[in-house]
């Protein structure tokens, strides 16, 4: 039957308890729950994310793919530590571990760097997971993870070497990839598959070309102060020591827009209000977005996102 829910009702009860546990965690730590608009005048410029839009009387509005930009505007306005649990939207993402709309937990901590926030992400997950997680978490730099599990140095290897390595690991790829594309391929199909089950793996210090909205620490090579959290092979969260430099933010938005144009993707308006907020001054902070549905999958021991959603994309 198509009217019936995807998830068992018991899973939905567990899911409600998980949300209550998350809120209790932040209430304990004095982090303020906020809500920001789902429909904005600007979208995500990142070429790897398809922002969905809705035609409205006053012009097109964009469904948020994460609440990052308005939350940073709150931070710039002096909100202090904040969190949000929101449904977010990403076109063309559907599968066992993807649904075009899903629940994101996003939070920001003033005065934290990415390492302090990595510790807090681990604390939150441990609190809701109880004894389901083997202790302790594994912490690796991006370079260590790639060297150990894919046998390549992500800061040295060129496109040719990465593609040869992928082939020798049994990956037969259709379509041309750039350097970061090859790195993404190895990371998501080889490296994270090697992470130990029922263990958290935290990966940090990414190539500057994959900084997204993280600050880049100068050096040789320069490193993005970005981290990812995995439960076994499942990517759960992505965080940054947040970029506060308005001019650099504008350059990255513009570079995204140029890449979108090169790839023949439709243009997305950049968020001028975010840039204004950064000009006004973003406090030094770190932020992270965690997929709540995926966390629920790990906690409940189920294999598909459908099993933790009342109504998945096919039933929506």
């Amino acid at each position: 039957m198509t009217w019936a829910p995807a998830a068992a009702l018991e899973r939905l009860r567990q899911r409600a308890r998980l949300l209550a546990d998350i809120r209790a965690f932040f209430a304990c730590r004095g982090v303020l729950e906020v809500e920001t608009p789902y429909l904005s005048t600007a979208g995500a410029t990142d070429p790897a994310i398809q922002s969905l839009s809705v035609p409205m009387g006053g012009g097109r509005r964009w469904l948020h793919s994460s609440p990052e930009f308005p939350m940073k505007r709150l931070l710039a306005a002096g909100s202090g530590d904040i969190y949000q649990i929101a449904r977010v939207f990403r076109g063309e993402e559907a599968g066992r571990r993807h649904n075009p709309e899903f629940t994101l937990l996003e939070w920001y901590r003033v005065g934290f760097d990415h390492h302090a926030l990595m510790a807090e992400v681990e604390a939150l997950i441990r609190q809701v997971a109880g004894d389901r997680l083997a202790a302790p978490a594994q912490v690796l730099t991006y370079r260590e993870a790639m060297l150990r599990h894919a046998g390549v140095d992500p800061f040295q290897a060129g496109e040719m070497e990465l593609s040869r390595r992928a082939r020798s690991l049994g990956l037969d790829v259709q379509g041309s990839l750039d350097r970061d594309g090859w790195l993404d391929l190895l990371m998501s199909m080889v490296v994270c598959e090697a992470f130990p089950a029922n263990t958290l793996t935290l990966v940090h210090d990414y190539p500057a070309s994959q900084a997204a909205l993280a600050r880049v620490r100068p050096g040789e090579p320069p490193l993005a102060e970005r981290f990812e959290v995995y439960w076994g092979a499942m990517e759960l969260a992505n965080g940054f020591h947040e970029l506060g430099d308005a001019a650099e933010q504008r350059r990255r938005f513009q570079a995204d827009r140029d890449r979108r144009a090169q790839q023949g993707l439709s243009p997305v308006p950049l968020d001028e209000r975010l840039i204004e907020a950064l000009e006004a001054g973003l406090p030094d902070c770190a932020g992270v977005a965690l997929g709540v549905d995926r966390l629920a999958m790990c906690l409940f021991g189920v294999e598909t996102l459908r099993d933790v959603l009342a109504f998945d994309w096919e039933r929506a």
Binding site: E93, A94, G95, R96, D180, D184, M187, M189, E228, A289
Partner: peptide, 14 residues
């Protein structure tokens, strides 16, 4: 067919 995509980065169909 499995859709694979890092949160930030290239999507693939495996």
């Amino acid at each position: 067919n499995e859709f694979v995509k890092p949160g930030k980065g290239q999507a693939f169909s495996r």
